[in-house]
Simulated scan of single mutants.
Amino acid sequence: MRFISTRAHGAIDYLMGVLLIIMPYILGFADGTSAQWIPQIIGAALIGASLLTDYEFGAVRMIPMPVHLFLDVGAGLLLVVSPWLFGFADRVFWPHLILGILEIGAGLTTRTTPETAAGTGADRTLR
Rank of each mutant, 00 (worst) to 15 (best):
F3Q: 02
T6V: 06
T6S: 12
T6Q: 13
R7D: 14
R7I: 07
A8H: 07
A11K: 14
I12C: 08
G17A: 03
G17M: 01
L19Q: 08
L19K: 02
L20Q: 04
I21T: 01
I22A: 11
P24M: 09
P24L: 08
Y25C: 05
Y25G: 09
I26R: 06
I26Y: 09
F29M: 05
A30T: 00
A30N: 05
D31H: 11
D31Y: 09
T33G: 15
T33Q: 13
A35W: 07
Q36K: 06
I38P: 05
P39V: 01
Q40L: 05
I41K: 06
I41H: 03
I42A: 07
A44F: 14
A45F: 12
L46H: 01
I47M: 02
G48R: 08
A49Q: 11
A49G: 04
L51T: 09
L52F: 11
T53D: 03
T53L: 03
D54M: 06
D54P: 01
Y55K: 14
E56A: 07
F57H: 14
G58T: 02
G58K: 06
A59G: 06
A59Q: 11
R61H: 10
M62V: 11
P64H: 04
M65I: 13
M65V: 15
P66L: 04
V67C: 04
V67A: 12
V67R: 13
V67F: 14
H68N: 10
F70R: 14
F70V: 15
F70I: 15
L71V: 09
V73W: 01
V73I: 11
V73M: 03
A75L: 00
L77E: 07
L78A: 13
L79N: 01
L79D: 00
V80N: 04
V80K: 01
V81L: 13
V81W: 05
V81H: 07
S82E: 03
P83I: 06
W84Y: 15
W84G: 12
A89E: 12
D90N: 11
F93N: 10
F93L: 08
L97H: 00
L97K: 01
I98Q: 08
L99D: 02
L99E: 02
L99S: 12
G100C: 10
G100Q: 08
G100F: 05
L102T: 03
L102A: 15
E103S: 13
I104Y: 02
G105I: 06
L108C: 06
T109W: 07
T110E: 00
T112F: 04
T112P: 00
T112H: 05
T112N: 06
T112Q: 11
T112D: 05
P114L: 02
E115I: 10
E115H: 13
A117V: 13
A118P: 06
A118K: 14
G119D: 07
G119V: 02
G121K: 05
G121I: 09
D123W: 15
D123I: 04
R124V: 08
L126E: 08
